[in-house]
Computed example of a mutant assay.
Amino acid sequence: MNRNDMLVLHITNDYKVSVETMENGVSSVKYISAESILDCLKSSIHNDGRIDSGILPQNCISYSGCANGNEFVVISFEEKTTDIIFEKTEYKDFPIPRLVFGFLISGDGRIINVRLGVTEKGRLTPKSKMFVYPFSNVSGFHLCTGSNVLPKIKSLHQLGGLPYYILKMPNNYDYYKESRTKLNLDYRGLLEHLKDKDSQYYYDNVLVGTDKTLNDFIAEVNL
């Protein structure tokens, strides 16, 4: 495989695994057992260490490991609503577009970087389109958590609960610009406008496209 080729793992809620490969612009999908993919990962390591991811979080779409102990895990967040807090206002069951989270974890379980983006709906591929994140506290794909300290983890499957934790953290106007959406509203006005809409409304009326793909979201990380 060359640098433009890619291999992506898809894991369903019932732990079925499909491997999508992109070689010379041609995509193919093969379905395999979880045991087979673990055996493959283990056999790919020679004398420089062993990869054993353990149980991955639900909706994990990408995993990378490095010899220094760092790991990068990308999760597709499939909820269509969530609870958010802006300043002192709580918005219950607030509609959201399809989000992807990327977690860079150190060897001792510290979360040292969080990436957050919006991707298109439907089946995800390396070429899936990314949109400008419409809310605050994100610059590019980098999430700023301010004074909030993210918990350490002991196992990668614990990452599955972090998107809920992060989205409920109080946020403000940090990094927010009216140009983030097609509506050009101030942040309070945006939230008030969106609170009674649905997830699809973002794709029809709100989101601003970028030249980035899901592959860029995954690949632009230094382990």
Rank of each mutant, 00 (worst) to 15 (best):
S43A: 15
F101S: 06
N113V: 01
C60D: 09
S33R: 11
K42H: 13
Y31H: 08
L56T: 01
I112H: 00
G109T: 05
L116T: 02
V26N: 15
S27R: 13
G102Y: 10
D48S: 12
G54A: 12
I112R: 00
N24P: 08
F77R: 01
R50S: 07
I111K: 10
G109L: 02
P97I: 03
N70C: 00
R110A: 15
F94M: 00
I61E: 03
F72D: 04
R110D: 14
G107I: 08
A34R: 13
F77S: 02
T81S: 15
I32G: 00
V29G: 00
G25C: 15
V100C: 15
G107A: 15
Y63Q: 06
E87V: 11
I61V: 13
E79Q: 10
V100H: 13
I112E: 03
A67D: 09
Y91T: 07
S62M: 14
S28I: 04
F86N: 13
I37D: 02
V74L: 03
K92I: 07
K80R: 14
N113P: 01
I112S: 00
F94V: 02
G107E: 12
K88D: 10
I84K: 04
F72R: 08
F86I: 11
L104Q: 15
V74H: 03
V29E: 09
